[in-house]
Amino acid sequence: MTETYLPPRQPPIPPWTYPGSGVLPPEPPQKKNRFRRNTVALLAAATLAAGGIGGTVGALVAGDDGAAVQTTSAPAATTSDTRPVDVSSVVAKVQNSVVQVNMRTANAQGVGSGVIISADGRILTNNHVVAGAEQLSVTLADGKTVDAHVVGTDPSSDLAVIQADGVSGLAPAKFADSSSVHVGDEVIAIGSPAGLQGTVTTGIVSALNRDVTVPGEEQEPQQQDENSPFPYMQQEDQSSQNTVSYKAIQTDASINQGNSGGPLFNAAGEVVGINSAIYSPVSGPDGSAGSVGIGFAIPSNTAQQVIDQL
């Protein structure tokens, strides 16, 4: 009997798409890691079937990590308190600090999330949530929707600060020191996946210092708040705007389209990260994809640095 050697089967390369474009050419074999940004911007509105709720659904923006992912993972935290986290109590404490961010262009609309950072309506979100928006509004936890405008953006970190108009007495979130986060810590994500506002998911910190690289948003100059000391950051080298890289917190808490810009809380109800990207090995014809338990958040210390520039 003659034996025939069969080479190992290579996994298929998933289609990575951009909003409004076709399938990208297959990447070279050495590029094995892809990250997807969970934005819902720039797709025509659709209607959610669940519960008859009106909302928008969109495509993921694909990113290319040109090198193997490098990880520096801290050991799991040790504590004498082994009691399980009371998720309902944490959510009740922080849910009023989370908003839905609604953006609209001339022919499309999208949904993201944000976290309140001041009682008078300053809100932190992702730059890719608001980039290119011609109209902007936020829906508060009580269901009230108010107009909003961009105060400042930092495309290099994919963060932006917006202002909700005509509000006061809001509940700002408390930010934690992300350098004290450990692998294994329990975390809670709150946001508006697919426009389902106030959705809560839980998980743990899976890894720290993940190198994440995603495409940057090319943004036309916008008229900013004349009272704002925080200008839109423009880079002379336009090619440098093509990608955004950062060290991320990895979590298995479910993060989907619409969670972008929303907070990742620790067990004390403090923000440890801003949910910004997911990895998904499979996508639909329109580029849509869902959580497979690999999500990424910009650390809260990075977010604080951007906020402090205001």
Rank of each mutant, 00 (worst) to 15 (best):
K32D: 06
L60R: 02
G184F: 04
S239C: 00
V146F: 08
V98Y: 13
A189Q: 03
N102S: 12
V200A: 01
Q224N: 13
G110V: 02
A67Q: 14
S73H: 00
I123S: 07
S254N: 09
Q304D: 09
G198A: 02
V101S: 11
Q70V: 15
F265E: 03
V98I: 15
Q30M: 10
A173Q: 06
P172I: 10
D252R: 01
V212N: 01
A171V: 13
D65N: 14
V187K: 05
I204D: 10
S97M: 08
S254D: 12
A108L: 05
I249S: 04
N275F: 00
R34M: 12
G198W: 00
S283A: 13
T139Y: 08
G110I: 09
G63R: 01
T17A: 09
I307W: 08
Q219V: 14
G152A: 14
P7Y: 07
R83L: 13
P25D: 07
V85W: 02
Q30A: 05
A289N: 09
Q100E: 15
G273A: 04
V244W: 02
V271Q: 06
D225F: 06
G258D: 05
P285H: 00
A160V: 03
G191H: 06
T139R: 15
K93N: 15
M233S: 12
P155C: 01
K144A: 09
T199Y: 04
K247P: 01
A68G: 13
P14F: 06
S21F: 11
A50D: 10
T71K: 07
G191R: 08
F265Q: 07
S178L: 06
L6T: 14
L264E: 10
V306R: 02
L159S: 00
A253C: 04
G52S: 12
T56P: 09
L196T: 00
V94N: 08
E226D: 13
S137E: 04
E27I: 00
A76N: 06
V94S: 10
S291C: 08
D252M: 05
P19F: 02
G63N: 05
S178N: 03
V87N: 09
R210N: 12
P11D: 04
V212W: 02
P12R: 03
A267I: 01
E226S: 15
V61D: 02
T213F: 01
P231F: 03
E236D: 13
G293Y: 09
N126V: 01
N242D: 07
V87P: 08
Q70R: 12
S291W: 03
I13T: 09
R83E: 08
A133G: 12
A92K: 15
T79I: 02
I190R: 04
L124C: 12
L140V: 04
N275Q: 05
S21Y: 11
G110M: 07
H149Y: 13
S157L: 05
S228A: 15
A189S: 11
E217T: 07
D154S: 04
P7M: 05
V115A: 09
R104V: 15
P8N: 02
I53G: 06
F265M: 10
G66R: 11
